[in-house]
Design a protein around this nucleic acid. Sequence first.
DNA 1: CAAGTTTTGCATGAATTGTGCATGAAAAGC
DNA 2: GCTTTTCATGCACAATTCATGCAAAACTTG
Lengths: 153, 153
Amino acid sequence: MKLDAFDIALLSALQKDGSLTNAALAEVVNLSASQCSRRRAALEEAGVIEGYSARLNAAKLGYGLRAIIRVNLSIHGQTNEGDFARFVESHSQIRSAFSVSGDADYILDVRVRDLEAFADFMHRQLLPNPQVSQVRSEIVLKTLKDDRGISPG
Amino acid sequence: MKLDAFDIALLSALQKDGSLTNAALAEVVNLSASQCSRRRAALEEAGVIEGYSARLNAAKLGYGLRAIIRVNLSIHGQTNEGDFARFVESHSQIRSAFSVSGDADYILDVRVRDLEAFADFMHRQLLPNPQVSQVRSEIVLKTLKDDRGISPG
DNA sequence: CAAGTTTTGCATGAATTGTGCATGAAAAGC
DNA sequence: GCTTTTCATGCACAATTCATGCAAAACTTG
């Protein structure tokens, strides 16, 4: 699918505010509301827009602590890749998980209530996992930027 | 603000799909549409719902490569914390940036078109920055999980 | 330059939202 | 223990918003 300047502007606006009405969108991108409706539908159909989400405030839901954890699996754990994926899937504290190239095998983005919950997660969930051989973590002190999406520009 | 089970269910549903109509929401959480409207408004007013965003498909927008970069600033750079924040702000490749406790000073979540663009970012943008003393990066091979938000459960 | 295709704005019927109002249940006060 | 107050809820309706048909404008292609 080809994207013109209107589409880019439209995506950009919708990423900032997904609840914009077509009329509001129309003002931003200088098109009629009906065109915005059509283009939006097309972008959804093409899968460029995967969907819409409410952005929730972590602090107000009691998630005060965020950490980035680098994980190495044990060498013979190669065959158990699926097991670690299942571990990730079954722990809601893990918000994002990536397999990576570099020093680490996996990087996890973890959110918990507080330091106590973090210690609990580390010592009762992650470290006892026999596949895990090494864990190094960094606790987020301050968020400078957190665009949850992708820059359409 | 106190959140009851209805609110939690509502937040959960809206995080999965922020474009749910109040009527659809009503079916999910077993309330009337008008109640969903009222509760939603209250949650927005209280800041629990910060807003809504379109989820965009990175690949279809030409962002094929994602990397997690750990950055250390030069020791005397303490005073220039604001400068690094400005650096982060002015580079759209940097999607998220956190100051962290641990080995690194900052962790960046970076998205670029391909390896070439990544090399360009590293060697032409990040490393020439005089505040930056050390950089270690991991390139994302596979995304196991990427919940952009917070579990309201 | 002409025929065909695509994009656009407008108008309209359908769907959605949000507010007033009445009801009932729980909390507070006496 | 009984009354009063408060609050959450569902229903109905007015106002807003959406999405499709249609014709004109703009852009392609041979």
